[in-house]
Design a protein around this nucleic acid. Structure first.
Lengths: 126, 126
DNA sequence: AAGTTAACGATAATGATTATCATTATCAAT
DNA sequence: ATTGATAATGATAATCATTATCGTTAACTT
């Protein structure tokens, strides 16, 4: 059943994401990886982003603009600036009590994603 | 500055969404509108979905799979089934206290979107 | 009734993501 | 170390949702 092999490209994708905190797009990850492995293909970056996400090693953040990726998988939330489209980490003062939430729901909840919208500090001042 | 005119097509898009509770995709809205206005164009449906969303009359729900639309704009949340990809409304037993949330954040929060993931009632039984 | 232009229908263009396929690299078994 | 099986790659074609273009139609103002 398709054992996973080592690959420099996959390692590079993972390293790039673990070192960045700005939630890059696939294209931006590609640019970063190219600096380490100039011959890398965009398709390989897409492949490994998908694979790493399915392995739970990175998180895909779906925004109205574009998909972005996060190498830090601890529970935290995100903010998208409506102006500059930047995605910023938000730590919550009190955690989201997921268990208390659904009033009547027959299925099983295994995860959730919370996105805030508005203006970031920089764009709010303009 | 570009006054808004009436249009049967836009009315039809809005009516379809107000009568449905299953969060259809643009394509599915198109199919529904076609039953009332067979000559309608897919481009017109996209145009009006975008316009109605910017007017705050409908909500666009961005999911990892596809964008979906909701004609009911009161505050409520959604659940996506990882199996059948259905999007279901979730009313919360206790509201999300947005104001208490951000620990330290210099910007301005104007909205948020909360999506739950898991297995819906049907898929959970299989 | 005529003029202005928002909105339309049809369709081409775009852009992000995925599929294909020949080649290369990883790794277990020898 | 060598070999064989196949996962992974790079290059690129294909796909598919969305947007742009453009000539025509229809809503509203005068």
């Amino acid at each position: 059943m398709s054992a996973l092999r080592n690959s420099k490209q996959r390692d590079a994708v993972l390293r790039v994401l673990s070192e960045r905190y700005d939630h890059p797009t696939a294209e931006e990850v590609y640019i970063s990886v190219k600096k380490v492995i100039p011959s890398v293909s965009l398709a390989t970056v897409y492949r490994n982003l998908k694979l790493l996400e399915s392995e739970g090693m990175i998180i895909k953040i779906t925004t109205p603009e574009s998909d972005r990726f996060d190498g830090h998988t601890h529970e935290h939330y995100h903010f998208t600036c409506n102006e500059c489209k930047r995605v910023i980490d938000l730590e919550l003062s009190e955690g989201l009590n997921v268990n208390a939430l659904p009033k009547s729901f027959g299925g099983k909840i295994t995860g959730h994603e919370l996105m805030f919208y508005g203006l970031c500090e920089g764009c709010n001042k303009i």
